[in-house]
């Protein structure tokens, strides 16, 4: 006789219809034109990229759209050396917090077109766009070094998180 039952399989399959909503929708629409458009909080005046439906600290809507630069500074980073499910690039590659010029929030994205061992805090980088462009932040394939001088620690140390 075969082995006693010790395990059953439990398939769960669910289908969702997801609307981006007006705030993320406007952000995605601008992405299609290779523009990075965040939102400014009317209360604290900070610029969020990607935009949020409300300012996370002030809890007010952010109606004002603000286009930010496509260059920015790496404030901190990690070199990803292991594969995991859902991964876009092949390790090793650098995942960095990047504060774009004109934005106040770090964007978690990938640094490419350079040896991972040369990625450093304070490094200047710029967006490299995918082709074709889809309505997702993955349309920025990665950020690459600009060759500009590094930014001093004091200028970004408040933006590490």
């Amino acid at each position: 006789m075969s082995e006693p039952v010790q395990r059953v399989l439990g398939p769960v399959a669910l289908d969702y219809t997801v609307h981006a909503g007006s705030v993320t929708g406007a952000f995605l629409e601008a992405l299609l034109d290779k523009r990075l458009v965040g939102r400014r909080c009317p209360s604290c005046a900070k610029v969020f990229l990607p935009p949020r439906g409300a300012c996370p600290t002030c809890a007010v809507p952010m109606p004002e759209a603000v286009e930010v630069g496509q260059r920015g500074v790496v404030t901190t980073f990690s070199v990803i050396r292991i594969p995991f499910d859902g991964q876009v690039l092949t390790p090793p590659y650098a995942a960095a917090h990047i504060v774009l010029d004109g934005a106040d929030t770090p964007l978690l994205h990938i640094v490419g077109e350079c040896d991972v061992d040369t990625v450093r805090m304070g490094m200047r980088v710029e967006a490299v766009w995918a082709d074709p462009i889809e309505p997702t932040l993955a349309s920025v394939r990665y950020f690459r070094p600009t060759g500009e001088p590094d930014v001093a620690w004091d200028a970004f140390k408040e933006h590490l998180g």
Partner: peptide
């Protein structure tokens, strides 16, 4: 944790990759 939910930023780093830059800081 790595499901590609529509319209969300891509998963760049995985769980440990989220915390590693903070440790570096």
């Amino acid at each position: 944790l790595s499901q590609k939910f529509p319209f969300q930023p891509p998963v760049a780093a995985g769980a440990g990759g989220y915390f590693a830059p903070i440790i570096r800081a």
